[in-house]
Amino acid sequence: MIKRRTFLKTTLGTGLALSAPWVARAQTRELRIQTWEGYTEPEWLKPFEEANDVVCRVNFTTSDDDLFTKALASKGGDFDVFALNTALIPRYVANSLYLPIDPSRLTNFEKLAPAFHDNALTVVDGEVRSLPFAWGSNPLIYDQDYFTEAPDSWGVLWDPALDKQVMMVDDSSSVISVAALYLGYEDPFNLNADQYAEVKRILIEQKQILLTYYAGFADGVSLFAQNGVKAMYSMGEPQVKELQAQGVNAALTIPKEKATGWLDGWMLSPSCRDVDLAYAWFDACLSQATGKIMTEKLGYGNTTDLDANAAAGLDYADKLVWFQLAPDTEYRTQLWNEIKAA
């Protein structure tokens, strides 16, 4: 690389100074990144660009489905690397929209904490499909003024003593998964008919005491704050901070039945134009410095610097069940409609 640059410099000389911009574009390498907002913060993107003399073209994902449609249409030709919820990996695998990653080409692969290093969603049959990068959970949020100590079970959301003071989110996959966890089912994303029947039964039973199913992140916060809610299934850790900002003495906990979590990872596009550069980017993302900055700045759990996680209260990655794509989402939606119509 250096050679080529030296060559260009010496052969073209300063006489071509006027056309320098064109020259620069022609010679500089480019990395096309498709990602959620927050995963390409300047704190690690800029140093990466400088160190590798590269220009990154970042494209933000708006929804999982848009991304999938886009990837399907161009066979991943629009980007070199992309960030994806690990739950969705099977979709991309089924359509060959990924390239396996060779961990030996990465300096920082071994920096991954154990829970992420051998994750069952990312490493299948010894094939590394995704590099875990950021995570969060769906904890139980509760009001510390009401609970003297953290509730240890999702059962509080079924407690008749909390009539009209508990909330769930209006989302079939979340609600069914957490009900399955509460019932003690090992894999909440793969349920049999009996288990579904039981899930349906307890969710209908729960309607008796639920205040409402809240519609979104901010909606949950405002309802909790305005209506004296004592506990709710949370869409994510940042809800705690926002509740505290509204004067609620809120805290989160992971109940003994475990909680669901989301895990995003970096993947390699089958149409990647510069694989070397992609690996360089992966290494940059898996550095402990990057993980620390991300956790401190954005509040997401990182996958490499456990101390930073612990400092931010994110010490429960091992108590989470990472989201997976249920093989029967249509049935789940139908079940959810049945529960709500009941």
């Binding site: 989302d171 989402t329 939606t333 959810w336 409609n337």
Partner: peptide, 13 residues
């Protein structure tokens, strides 16, 4: 309206 929405926004059916 919610039922219709669930088919579009959740199940993608």
């Amino acid at each position: 309206g919610r039922v219709v929405w669930s088919q579009f926004g959740v199940t993608f059916n």
